[in-house]
Amino acid sequence: MAPRVGLRSLEKRRTLIDGVRSNIHVLMLGVKYFVNPRRMTLVYPREYPKLSEGYRGFIILKKEKCISCAACARICPSAAMKMIRVQEPDPKHPGKAKMKQYPVINYQRCIFCGYCVDVCPTEALYHVNYHDIVYDNLADMFWDLETFQREPEYKTAAEGRPVRIVIHEELGLVKVPVEDKA
């Protein structure tokens, strides 16, 4: 097929009238928003986004489900999860101890990718739906086996008001307060 030949006119140069009109338009728009601001800023510690279940937040271990397969430690891309050995009473031979392996996590390294949770064959690992926890020293971010089984305290929820952010066609982002069920 032969290429189609056609005339296309250049875009018209903006005239002075156009310039004046668009300047007035932008100023009016500015005044409109100035008088009636539609702020989207999340005033963070006072309001915090309520994240849905299934959000990839902190990871918690259910120790009784763990079968010590070490799949989580092997798949971890940032080597945050490590297996440790602990001595436990052996259920088959009462009175005797046996060594068992469990994962522990280093939150300095964890990137919250969730691979460990996905790969765990017995669902011994699960996510909580928050991630904004501040530690004032790095050593606290190494979780030992005890810490790894407890959900960390979510201090933001104690101070702030949960909101859900929804997208509105006209207003942009809108914050809708939600009731905290916890």
Binding site: G30, Y33, F34, P37, R38, R39, M40, T41, V43, G172
Partner: peptide
């Protein structure tokens, strides 16, 4: 503050 209002932010707070 005015720039923040128009640009839907909060500005100094």
């Amino acid at each position: 503050k005015a720039a923040a209002r128009v640009q839907r932010r909060l500005g100094p707070y």
